[in-house]
Design a protein around this nucleic acid. Structure first.
Lengths: 215, 215
DNA sequence: GATTTCTTGATATTTATTTGACATTCCTGG
DNA sequence: CCAGGAATGTCAAATAAATATCAAGAAATC
């Protein structure tokens, strides 16, 4: 389980499995076969079985998978069996949207701080979390455990802020700024580039229109 | 250019090329070779050349690529050479964040409406765009061109809203709700599942910790 | 104007990912 | 307790994607 490198493609699918299994769990389903999951999720049963088998055999022949058990095991694989303390840099709408999303806390991502450079926001609270000024950041990180920092600020300030975060010991960044960060090897970065997502959408609109104009 | 099917992987990379070329353009760079781009973007030069060649030869031997020309051509490929009228369903923080992001308009995504079910928001405006009540949606779509609808609402209401949108003629959905939409074939859906992105981050944190504990 | 250097576009190779097939195992019903 | 059926885990095949290589063409240099 430790030695083998798991492909990125597999990891991208796991959260989706996790979500579906969570929904099944809520609706009281106790067992499920890869074939049933395949129908619901629109991926091949073979892929589901092979993905899961990267991490061990969670099912039983002739029976399928126990939903609760599988859900919990995938949770462990994804690192959801612990808490993460998260701060948000940039308290604009997007930062506040993240801060307000309670579901994250249910999964163990606890938002402990919101930071901004705009003095107007000083002292404003979001779900009880006060917005602090960005210059308090180094001190805050030293005094509080910070596992993840979400960057929800304009790209002009993003890389400077990222450097400050990393210098002070933050090793994981959830980057919403429209730029790529160049950080040391050991820093884990997960990008959410909304404009790129939107461009993929427009590509698909264009392609659809082209294909259906031709005939 | 029309017949050949382009792989999803290529399409995912194009917006990033587009972004880098835009930055080069802004900083006055006129020409660039696949090797230089490769260094900056951390992808292989071979991949860049092959990706671009799916759509035709935009470069010149011994010279490289003209930045302005290539930028504009990729824009055309991505369908950025026209405008899209977009509405946002769900005027919470996330919806408002999207509405406030002016950069989208610069790329031709014009936000014409914001909708919510919360009567408190009736009449509130965001960047001059009034928030309307969700029951006005069918009429609005009939009377205004709507190319894209962004779904920024809780998953409980997402699929019902998506159905209403599609019934009234919206064919492209940018889905931020934490659920998968089951819509007719012809509807183009682009998902942004933030919680899945966050789980990938936590997976990588976990993996890093495991690898560095072992020794 | 000839020569060298550079860089593309195309092809070949390698690597990665997905799908299909099936023997094995375990559940279930009688 | 046994036979039949169901579904996994695994391996092999097929497909897809990424990388390396190189001939050919264009620019820069002398």
């Amino acid at each position: 389980m430790e030695g083998k490198e798991i492909s990125r493609a597999v990891i991208k699918r796991l959260p989706r499995y996790y979500r579906y299994l969570g929904e099944l769990l809520e609706s009281g389903v106790e067992r499920i076969s890869s074939n049933e999951l395949s129908d619901q999720m629109h991926v091949t049963a073979s892929q589901i079985r092979q993905d899961l088998n990267n991490f061990g055999g969670f099912g039983q022949q002739g029976y399928g998978y126990n939903v609760k058990y599988l859900h919990s095991e995938i949770g462990k694989i994804l690192g959801l069996d612990r808490s993460y303390y998260m701060i948000i840099i940039g308290a604009g709408n997007l930062g506040q949207a993240l801060a307000n999303y309670v579901q994250f806390e249910k999964r163990g991502f606890i938002i402990t701080g919101l930071f901004d450079v705009n003095p107007v926001l000083r002292g404003v609270t979001v779900r009880g979390i006060p917005i602090r000024m960005a210059d308090e950041l180094p001190e805050f990180i030293r005094e509080n455990q910070v596992d993840i920092a979400a960057l929800t600020l304009p790209k002009a300030n993003a890389s400077e802020m990222a450097d400050i975060l990393v210098e002070n010991g933050v090793n994981a960044i959830w980057n919403f700024a429209h730029t790529d960060l160049h950080l040391p090897e050991h820093v884990i970065v997960e990008n959410v580039h909304l404009s790129e997502s939107l461009m993929q959408l427009s590509y698909n609109i264009k392609r659809y229109n082209q294909q259906h104009k031709k005939q």
